[in-house]
């Protein structure tokens, strides 16, 4: 923790402030351009400045069945994958927090592996194993892939929260005569509740956007990122892609803002 009294360094040099501003702009201006192009009247090229502005594409996008199908599939996959990750991640975090056992350090590493290894490695590994098991590619194989790399997000959040809360509250609850169920219901759950919510929302955002592993496990199903990828190579009504992109940006921004709120001051 830094004390504000130590803030005697004063203002940053101008060059540093300009560099900071430059990097922030570099990260955010492209997003703004997506918004702009959702309103262009030019549907064949990406001409700048746009020849005209219109709201029509929002209406067109709403009536495109392929958009809806992809969106609904992505939402369903993200929901189930998040639930699976919540259960498995919390179990793992609880085990690691309350007991010491052989290989405890390896658990974090094992859970992080699907995120640390290049996506194609996980993707093709799952694909060949699932193909070998003669399991039909589709909804459930996408869920399996997503749940695998979402577990670590929940795990990290819950474990960080356990470490911050400490054990004393649970002990106090028991000393005061609460039974395990009451302790769980009134002490543990409220303590880790927001961490679960934050981890769950991040897992949801992660699953909702994933494309690399999904490409290998989706079979003929089309999630929203896969739909967008197909629009990159063979576009149809380009501004519709922008409308969907705007929608995706907004939809993923909300859980990130909320998750940041919920975990503030700790588990970053």
């Amino acid at each position: 923790m830094r004390s504000e009294a130590n803030e005697s360094r004063g203002r940053a040099p101008l060059s540093l402030r300009l560099a900071t501003l430059g990097v922030i702009l570099f990260l955010h201006v492209p997003m703004a351009i997506i918004f702009l192009y959702a309103f262009t009247t030019d549907d064949a090229t990406f001409s700048f400045p746009p020849p005209g502005l219109t709201f029509d594409w929002f209406g067109v996008a709403v009536h495109r069945p392929d958009v809806w199908q992809a969106l609904l599939l992505s939402l369903r996959v993200a929901l189930i994958a998040t639930l699976a990750a919540l259960v498995l991640g919390t179990l793992a975090a609880t085990a690691v927090y309350r007991s010491k056992f052989f290989g405890r350090e390896a658990i974090s590493f094992l859970l992080l592996l699907p995120l640390a290894l290049p996506g194609i490695v996980s993707g093709i590994a799952l694909r060949s194993a699932i193909g070998m098991a003669d399991f039909p590619f589709g909804f459930w194989t996408i869920v399996i892939g997503h749940a695998t790399f979402c577990i670590v997000v929940v795990y990290n959040n819950v474990l960080a929260r356990y470490r911050r809360t400490g054990r004393s509250q649970v002990e106090a609850s028991m000393d005061l005569g609460a039974d395990p169920l009451q302790t769980f219901r009134y002490v543990i759950l409220p303590a880790i509740g927001t961490a679960l919510l934050a981890g769950g929302m991040l897992a949801f955002a992660l699953s909702f956007d994933e494309i690399v592993v999904t490409t290998f496990t989706a079979g003929h199903e089309e999630t929203l990122p896969i739909w967008m990828f197909s629009q990159l190579t063979k576009p149809r009504q380009r501004p519709v892609t922008n409308v969907v992109a705007v929608f995706v940006i907004v939809l993923t921004a909300i859980p990130i803002f909320l998750a940041n709120r919920l975990t503030q001051g700790g588990s970053e």
């Binding site: 997506i34 967008m228 990828f229 992109a245 993923t252």
Partner: peptide, 14 residues
């Protein structure tokens, strides 16, 4: 955390 595909797509426009 926001969609990586959307971000790649943005550069197609740019």
């Amino acid at each position: 955390w926001s969609s990586y595909l959307v971000r790649v797509y943005a550069w197609r426009l740019i």
